[in-house]
């Protein structure tokens, strides 16, 4: 991993930990599982326009509860100010705890699961209709695979050959109450999604090179679905694979320990 990228990842994780602690907010585990995905998207994939703070390609965070990770990368990219980022958790902040389109650099608000993918499809369909080469990336959670809209949407995307659409599944294997496998069985996932007519890439969602490769859309007539195998709470040993960190925020002692682990990684 190059030094700059490593530095950004550490900085984002540090902010996630500090701000969760300060705001006493939930969803830290699902934020830590998507940091590398966001870094690759914003550093290497999403194309910018000449207009400041605007991207040519569309990104939608469908797992809106992981907004803090997105706010942090937007700060790293100079789209959000430090003052705004540090307002997270305060009364009347712009940064609500589910992703908000009122925040610069964010196109669509989510929070209720199963909404982002159909919207991303509408965006991709619009690009096709207008003969634009704009691409659409949408990051969904594995819990969203329980939603009927996810499967309605995948069928539609495959039928319309939306090869400008990339769905990234944050497959951290933990939902809200317990493991995915104990909630609603979704395996065999690769086979299931392939059978819906999508091109599937099964990768390590923390591996920068694998992410970069998977996020290059080349298929001529199929939407791409990336199953990004991740670890919920990645980078902090006592948070990893632990359901408690879907809800808990770190206390001062836990924060100190977590920051030490993240910065020594």
């Amino acid at each position: 991993m190059n030094t700059l990228q490593n530095k950004i990842i550490k900085s984002i994780k540090t902010h996630i930990l500090q701000l969760s602690h300060k705001a006493k907010s939930s969803h830290i585990g699902g934020c830590l599982s998507i940091v590398e995905i966001l870094v690759v998207l914003f550093n290497s994939v999403l194309r910018k326009t000449s207009v400041k703070r605007k991207f040519k390609d569309t990104f939608i965070l469908s797992k809106g509860h992981a907004c803090l990770a997105l706010y942090c990368i937007l700060f790293e990219k100079g789209i959000l100010s430090k003052k705004t980022l540090l307002s997270y958790g305060e009364n009347n902040t712009l940064l609500m705890s589910h992703v908000s389109h009122h925040v610069p650099g964010i196109k669509f608000s989510t929070g209720s699961l199963g909404h982002g993918l159909p919207v991303a499809i509408g965006s991709a369909l619009s690009a096709k209709k207008d003969k634009s080469n704009r691409k659409v990336f949408v990051l969904i959670s594995d819990g969203e695979l329980n939603e009927g809209t996810t499967w309605e949407a995948l069928m539609f995307a495959a039928h319309h050959k939306l090869n400008n659409l990339c769905v990234i599944i944050d497959y951290n294997k933990l939902q809200s109450l317990t493991f995915v496998s104990e909630t609603i069985k979704i395996e065999p996932l690769i086979k299931k999604i392939s059978s819906f007519g999508c091109e599937v890439k099964n990768i390590n969602g923390h591996n920068i090179l694998q992410l970069k490769k998977a996020l290059k859309l080349k298929n001529k007539n199929k939407p791409r679905v990336i199953i990004a195998n991740t670890i919920k709470g990645k980078g902090v040993s006592f948070m990893e694979n632990n359901i408690a960190w879907h809800y808990k925020s770190p206390n001062a002692r836990e924060l100190k320990k977590a920051l030490k682990e993240v910065n020594n990684a």
């Binding site: 196109k107 965006s123 369909l125 069928m155």
Partner: peptide, 26 residues
């Protein structure tokens, strides 16, 4: 033909798609 879509019998998806297209200026 380029401005007409049949979303199938899937109304939640249909409304999401409509929103996504509207988000892009339609």
């Amino acid at each position: 033909p380029n401005q007409f879509y049949n979303a199938g019998v899937a109304e939640q998806n249909m409304m999401g798609i409509a929103s996504g297209m509207a988000l892009e200026g339609n």
